[in-house]
C-alpha cells in the first residue's frame, strides 16, 4: 500500500466517522435538555400522556408566567421563580466576587511580601482544598447557628468565600509578573497598594475572567449548603427549590411548573459558559496545573 493510499483512507474516514460520533455526543448532551424544555411547554394532562409529545406547545407561555410569578402549588408551596432566581443570583455574585477579591489580595500578600508565617498561612489556605462542605456538614452548621447566620444571605455566602483554587491560580500568575515592573513602580514611588491597583489588577484581567466563569457556576449551583442553612422558603435558591417541588409520591408533582423552573434555573450558568467559553476553558485547564 502506498503512502498516498493511506492518506486517502485517512481522509475519507476522518470525513464522516468523527462527525457521526460527535453527533451521538451532542444527542446525549442535548436530549435531556430538550425533553425538559418540551415538558415545560405542555399542560399537566399532556405530560401525563404516554408517550409524551416531542414538540413544544404554546401552553409554554402560561407555564413560564405561572412559574415566574406564582410558583408551584404542590406539597411544597414554593415562592415564585423570580424570588428563587434572585436568591441564586445574589448567592452566585456574592460568592464569585467575594472569592475573587479575597483570593486576589491573599495571593498578593503571599507573593509580593516577606513576613513571618508567610508559608504557614499559604498552607493553611491550601489545606482547605481537603475540607469540602460535604465532609464537615454538621459542625459547620453548628458554627453558623452560633453566629446567628441561619436563614440569611450572610450565612448562605460567607462560609463559601474562602478559595484555595483561586488563590493558587492568582499566586501562580503573580509569580510570572516581571521583577522589573515592581522595580520601576518602586522607583516611581508607587506603594504596594498603588502597584496592586494600577499594575497587578489590569494584568490579571484574563485570569479574573476565567475564575469568574468557574466561580459563578460554582455559586449558582450550590446545593447542600443552602439546603442546610435555610429553613424559610423565601430564602431558597432555585436549585434547592426545584428538588423540593418534586413530590415524594403522596402528592402529584406539578411537572409543567417544575420543568419551566428547571429551564429558568439553567439559563444563567449556561449563558455565562457560552459567552465566556474561551476564558472558561483556559481557566479550567490552568487551575489544575
Amino acid at each position: 500500500m502506498s503512502a498516498q493510499n493511506i492518506a486517502q483512507v485517512d481522509y475519507s474516514r476522518s470525513n464522516w466517522l468523527p462527525h457521526v460520533v460527535l453527533w451521538i455526543g451532542l444527542l446525549i448532551t442535548v436530549f435531556p435538555l430538550y425533553v425538559t424544555f418540551v415538558a415545560s411547554t405542555l399542560t399537566p394532562t399532556d405530560i401525563a400522556q404516554t408517550p409524551m409529545q416531542m414538540y413544544p406547545s404554546l401552553q409554554g407561555i402560561e407555564n413560564y408566567t405561572t412559574a415566574f410569578t406564582t410558583g408551584s402549588k404542590g406539597t411544597y408551596l414554593s415562592p415564585p421563580a423570580m424570588t428563587l432566581l434572585f436568591n441564586s443570583l445574589v448567592v452566585a455574585l456574592v460568592v464569585t466576587f467575594g472569592k475573587i477579591t479575597v483570593s486576589l489580595i491573599s495571593a498578593y500578600a503571599v507573593v509580593f511580601f516577606r513576613f513571618p508565617g508567610r508559608m504557614f498561612f499559604f498552607w493553611m489556605i491550601f489545606i482547605t482544598l481537603m475540607l469540602p462542605v460535604e465532609v464537615r456538614i454538621l459542625p459547620t452548621y453548628q458554627v453558623v447557628t452560633d453566629l446567628n447566620l441561619i436563614n440569611s444571605y450572610a450565612g448562605l455566602t460567607l462560609p463559601l468565600i474562602a478559595s484555595a483554587t483561586a488563590t493558587l491560580l492568582f499566586r501562580q500568575f503573580f509569580m510570572t509578573i516581571p521583577d522589573e515592573l515592581v522595580e520601576a513602580a518602586k522607583i516611581d514611588g508607587a506603594g504596594p497598594l498603588r502597584f496592586f491597583k494600577d499594575v497587578v489588577i489590569p494584568l490579571s484581567r484574563t485570569n479574573i475572567a476565567a475564575m469568574f466563569v468557574i466561580l459563578f457556576i460554582y455559586g449558582w449551583n450550590q446545593y447542600l449548603w443552602p439546603l442546610l442553612i435555610t429553613t424559610s422558603n423565601s430564602l431558597d435558591v432555585v436549585v434547592v427549590a426545584i428538588k423540593k417541588m418534586i413530590g415524594t409520591g403522596a402528592e402529584p408533582t406539578d411537572w409543567h411548573i417544575v420543568m419551566a423552573t428547571t429551564i429558568l434555573a439553567l439559563i444563567p450558568p449556561v449563558l455565562v459558559i457560552i459567552a465566556m467559553q474561551k476564558s472558561f476553558v483556559k481557566g479550567l485547564t490552568d487551575t489544575e496545573k
Binding site: L26, T29, P32
Partner: peptide, 22 residues
C-alpha cells in the same frame, strides 16, 4: 461541537438529576 459538549458542566448536579429523573 465543543460549545454543546461543554454545556452539562454549567448545570447543577441537582438539576442534572431532575432532568434524568424526569
Amino acid at each position: 461541537y465543543r460549545t454543546i459538549l461543554v454545556l452539562p458542566y454549567a448545570i447543577a448536579p441537582a438539576v442534572a438529576g431532575v432532568l434524568w429523573l424526569f
